[in-house]
Amino acid sequence: MLAFTIRRLSQSVIVLFVMSVIVFAGVFAIGNPVDILINPEADIAEQEETIRRLGLDKPMWAQYGVFMSNALQGDLGNSFVHNIPALEIIATRLPATLELAFLAVGFAIILGVPLGMYAGLKDDTFIGKAIMTGSILGFSLPTFWVGLIFIMLFSVSLGWLPASGRGETVDIFGVPVSFLTWDGFSHLFLPALNLALFKISLVIRLARSGTKEVLLQDYIKFARAKGLSNTRIVGVHVLKNILIPVITVLGLELGNVIAFAVVTETVFAWPGIGKLLIDSISNLDRPVVVAYLLMTVTMFILINFVVDILYSILDPRVRLEGSK
């Protein structure tokens, strides 16, 4: 087990190294880093100071070393636009994205599980087929397109829900959240549903195939032979069995949701890290871009690492294969 953990850990470090090289190369090797990394409005003395601090007068490999050692100390440079450390901006924007992502995952469970179970129970009915067609659409339509239709329908035509911004927020332990006020929640609803759409489709498929499989099991027939009501059989015996894979998959997809928030946040002008990234790219605020990418990549590598370790604990066969 220890050997396996070390193997996976070293692999993760290698991936992180490769990714940091790509990001570094992107920022430092293309174009003149002095132009890209230093605020053009800074005076000469400040510019020279920055060149020295970033080691831009040194050879490439040495520059990478300086870049990485700074990065490891949490220093990814200051934002040109806001003139504060890039990581700090990301930290202040992160709660908004997390709130959106968690609500989206919540929607995926609350809407996806019952719809999928219904489609599994009534496979041949019109509604059952309609749900599956809907999930295929949910898979193939671009997120931003659906977001646009949401805005057109619910904000412009019907005027029910606001189309942009975060609305009124309340602080919990110093972190502002939207979902506790009506105004905030009404702002949160459409973007969260938009972000959830893909995951809802995914959950519908998982829940449907799970339900169909579970229904064929002997223990369901045995439950019926015990004289249980249909409500109890579907609501307890079937539901509990399909929830395990659904929650596992959604847990894995959380990182994915955060990455896809880039699109939804842009459509709904939601002030999270995704919109920050797009704004920073168009403002050429490179330090923020670098900070975002490195942070997200690290997050993914961490999630993958943890999942691998968890799987190997749950399923010893994975471990054997890995150490061959």
Binding site: Q217, D218, Y219, K221, F222, H237
Partner: peptide, 20 residues
């Protein structure tokens, strides 16, 4: 069902719900 007439199935590994 289950009160006046009960049934026991063939495969004991499959008749009990694994998650309850």
């Amino acid at each position: 069902r289950g009160s006046r007439i009960s049934m026991v199935f063939q495969d004991p590994m499959m008749t009990l719900n694994p998650v309850l």
